[in-house]
Write a protein that binds this DNA or RNA. Sequence first.
DNA 1: GAGTGGTCTAGACCACTTA
DNA 2: AAGTGGTCTAGACCACTCT
Lengths: 232, 232
Amino acid sequence: MSTERASFRTIRDEMSRRIAERIWLPGALIPGEEALAREFGAARATVNRALQELARAGVLERKRRAGTRVALHPVREARFIIPRVRQEIEARGSEYRYQLLSCEEELAPEVICARLSLRTASMLVHVRCLHLADRVPYQFEDRWINPQVVPDAKFATFRDMGPNEWLVGHAPFSNAEFTFMAAAASDEEAGLLQIRPGDPVFVGERITWMRAEPITLVHMVHPSSHRMVTQL
Amino acid sequence: MSTERASFRTIRDEMSRRIAERIWLPGALIPGEEALAREFGAARATVNRALQELARAGVLERKRRAGTRVALHPVREARFIIPRVRQEIEARGSEYRYQLLSCEEELAPEVICARLSLRTASMLVHVRCLHLADRVPYQFEDRWINPQVVPDAKFATFRDMGPNEWLVGHAPFSNAEFTFMAAAASDEEAGLLQIRPGDPVFVGERITWMRAEPITLVHMVHPSSHRMVTQL
DNA sequence: GAGTGGTCTAGACCACTTA
DNA sequence: AAGTGGTCTAGACCACTCT
């Protein structure tokens, strides 16, 4: 008889507490849905929702017939918002500025084609640009776009709008791969970001696909003052 | 009359298709749950589940009374596995080695207390250690643990097991904040990682809590060869 | 074969927000 | 005030997997 009304939230939190306080030990089998429903005075569907949330969070492992166990080695995941440079800057309350450096159709270097899993050397649209926050260089973007998948890219000028924003409206993606790393600034990067060559830079790389077709590869370089923060 | 049985999956996918193919345009109001339930020949709860999944994925925005709209600027998220250094190394097929550098109970500097939102200067357990992959330095870890929340930490030696692995079994967390950045290696970091001072390093920082209680702050430094990769 | 979780239904009430 | 989504219930059947 609890004072709180039975809801999937209170049930979820109570079960979470039992796991945290080791009332339910790692690896242990916990009661079935029906038993829990009786205990909490709720419908099985409500308990099920609570259990599914905890399973999605990685703290429970559920198998039909075998029951539900407290995860032994919880594989915990965290999420981050896929960065959209303009929004990132405006969310800080800074003024966003964009500057196109170059935009050409080129035969892409082998390294680039390989990263995009293009078998043959291909003509790709190569865009280089700079994003500024309050007139201070924030990110240098070096991007290759596959016109096989995004034919419009050949005709876009990218003078007033960054390729990131442009692509959002012209080529949704179904898959993406992200890489983050630290590197030393090249001479060109240093000049553009107003730092010294060899200074550490934070680099993000993103490849996106629609189904199996590679859309774009982008290399994003930030000065070392940059922080990528995420929760939970 | 569809050949497929109505399930939240098929309903979700069909709605997803309508959004991708711009049958439902960005910003547009889509039919209410009841109308959709009639259309798909399903119960409202089933349609609700499909809609909630799409809302969680960021492609729909739902408001009571106002209805459900296709997101204008979908906030897309990606996930990454919360790194566990031993598993990271072993997953590459490398031999994991661990080396304790120091482990003391200390009055923590103000900066550290502030990051952990501890009002008063506190005695914390300070652990410094090195993780190696195939005998090559992989990560330097500098960690502060709050013994108020994890009393056992005072008695752990961390000689044979890294604090990361130890904490997994002794202090689960409910919340975490991650920060990633690039920095220049300090003299100490350079010595430990066998690189030169000033070389770029990839730094991850993680703070974890149980409820509102801060558990630990860890600073993880990798040589610039490190890559953090994630999908979708 | 049997037991567990996965999902669906039909109906109900509630909470929030906007008109 | 009213309409929309949010959640809960009770019951049912199904799918998977272990024995």
